[in-house]
Computed example of a mutant assay.
Amino acid sequence: MDSSAISSHITSKFAGIQPIPAWGEVSFFYNPGGKLPRGVYFATLKDKDGSNDRASDLQRPGVFRLNIGISKPTYRSLFGEQPARPPAGGVVDTGHDFTALDQLLPHPVYGWMSWVCVLNPSAVTFKTIEPLLAEAYDLAVAKFAKRAACG
């Protein structure tokens, strides 16, 4: 699958989504009606390295990374305990090859926050991670409800 197909899937499957491009990525925010300044993001598509995120070598031609914010219990069921937060500009210490294509991995920078990623997911891999996207969306909806109630 390419990043535009994934973007189309996310925006068509999940209601209230606003994709916002910034910093070499597209962030998917749950923000129905634009009630919050940005909303709550739950997934991103990144197609180039950032100043603090080069572990996936996204400068390779055609390489992109889908990032998904999942729950702590789900992260732990996939990878064990969350790694420690890396120092500024650093990478989480999990022993994974963050340049591997088509493989679910902890996020190289935000794994400590229960984010996961996959570089260039195939259609088969995407099908297996769709439940993770749905979980991330549900978490964003719940966070949004709390924030909107307070504001």
Rank of each mutant, 00 (worst) to 15 (best):
A84G: 10
R65C: 10
T99A: 12
P106C: 07
V40S: 08
Y137K: 05
G33R: 09
Y75Q: 01
D93N: 13
V91R: 12
H107N: 13
V118A: 14
N67K: 11
S56T: 11
G89A: 11
G24M: 04
G62T: 09
K72T: 14
G16C: 09
V109F: 06
H96C: 11
I6N: 04
S56C: 10
V40W: 01
D47G: 12
P86W: 05
I70S: 02
V118E: 05
L105R: 11
S122Y: 05
A123V: 12
R38L: 14
G39A: 03
L66P: 04
G24F: 03
A123W: 00
F64A: 01
P73K: 09
D47L: 02
W23S: 11
G33V: 07
F79S: 01
Q82T: 14
S12P: 00
D2Y: 06
L104F: 05
F29P: 00
L101R: 15
G90D: 06
H9P: 01
M1S: 10
G50D: 08
K143Q: 14
I17Q: 04
I129Q: 03
L78W: 10
F126S: 02
G89E: 11
T125I: 03
T128I: 00
F126T: 02
G34I: 08
I129W: 02
P86L: 03
F29W: 05
T125G: 00
F98A: 07
I10M: 02
F29N: 02
L105K: 08
D47M: 07
H9F: 15
A43V: 07
H107F: 11
A22I: 05
V26E: 14
T44K: 03
